[in-house]
């Protein structure tokens, strides 16, 4: 929850991603309450409506759920859900740009694999 906001992406997306990341890193645990819209608004100095939009996104995906009169909670199985979602997006978000950059630099697939192998 303590990452900084950037201008490169819509704020509400960043809010929802930050919460997701915290769930992945087990900073937020399942069945645990997440900060309220107003708390998020004050923390990031953003409009509460924006924070609500970010939270709404996670509610729609079933990652958070609302307990009436109390607040927002992390759903059971949320971490699993985020993991599979992010894995599915990994190829698109990270591998594709890697290959594109490698292509414009003339790095072959073999060289690339070697580089990855050397990293470990």
């Amino acid at each position: 929850m303590n990452e900084r906001l950037t201008e490169q992406k819509s704020i509400y997306l960043q809010i929802s991603e930050m919460i997701e990341t915290d769930i992945l890193r087990e900073i937020l645990l399942e069945e645990e309450q997440v900060p309220s819209t107003n708390e998020l608004a004050k923390l990031y100095t953003i409009n509460p409506a924006t924070a609500a939009k970010g939270i709404g996104l996670l509610v729609d995906e079933g990652i958070l759920y609302k307990r009436r009169g109390i607040g927002m909670f992390v759903s059971k199985g949320a971490r699993e859900k985020i993991l599979s979602k992010r894995k599915a997006a990994f190829a698109e978000n990270h591998v594709a740009p890697l290959l594109a950059e490698a292509r414009s630099l003339g790095i072959s697939k073999e060289e690339l694999l070697t580089m990855i192998g050397e990293r470990n």
Partner: peptide, 13 residues
Amino acid sequence: REQFYKLLLEEYA
């Protein structure tokens, strides 16, 4: 300025 916007949000909320 940051302090002001936080106050404004607090009052708004």
